[in-house]
């Protein structure tokens, strides 16, 4: 029994039952499939998180964000600037207790280099309903290239507990058609 010493003293020389051996082979192979699937996706898949990141001081990140806001703000919504940066550019979103700023307006099917960082504690960038979730750290800036592929209004929820006002922290990203923009 499993609660008594093995009855065969030389238990490591016992033959392995067939069914166990088959299952080990299947399970091991499945492990390899799952392992190589991740590598395969780096070549074939379109959703791979960038490892581009920099150490950065909160003031510097805030300055860069502010520069983008100053240059490309198109309107105001509930006190938040709505920024429409040029397609293909570097865009910034900063997290702090308890807001995401600014609101971004992006064009469909254009790529942007999205910079994320926090000015205080850790936050969670949770883009909904797309369901893209990335951790946002203070002292570090993460840069990912995104290509929004559907027009709409998206929420940015904070999904890392950051303090007693955590549930107040909602930001926004608009994705608009390119034509729409040329009218403005």
């Amino acid at each position: 029994m499993a609660i008594t010493p093995p009855s065969e003293r030389i238990w490591w020389k016992e033959p392995i039952a067939r069914v166990e051996l088959i299952w080990i082979v299947i399970a091991f192979t499945w492990g390899l499939v799952m392992f190589f699937m991740m590598i395969y996706w780096h070549g074939a898949g379109e959703q791979n998180l960038s490892s581009e990141a920099y150490q950065i001081k909160a003031e510097v990140f805030a300055e860069r964000t502010q520069a983008m806001i100053d240059e490309h703000t198109v309107r105001d919504e509930s006190g938040f600037p709505v920024v429409h940066p040029p397609a293909g550019s570097d865009v910034y979103m900063m997290a702090r207790l308890y807001q995401w700023s600014p609101i971004l307006e992006l064009e469909k099917d254009q790529t942007y280099r999205l910079h994320l960082s926090s000015l205080d504690v850790q936050h969670g960038f949770s883009l909904q309903p797309v369901n893209i979730n990335v951790q946002v750290h203070p002292d570090y800036e993460m840069v990912m290239t995104i290509r929004p592929d559907q027009v709409g209004e998206y929420g940015v929820v904070c999904n890392e507990f950051c303090g007693l006002g955590h549930h107040l922290m909602v930001g926004k990203i608009y994705v608009v058609d390119r034509e729409e923009q040329s009218d403005e």
């Binding site: 909904q128 999904n159 955590h166 549930h167 909602v170």
Partner: peptide, 16 residues
């Protein structure tokens, strides 16, 4: 989201 008090965001400035 996990660790979140209000999935309706009733008190948030921007609605979601």
């Amino acid at each position: 989201s996990r660790r979140h008090w209000d999935m309706k965001f009733a008190d948030a400035i921007l609605p979601f």
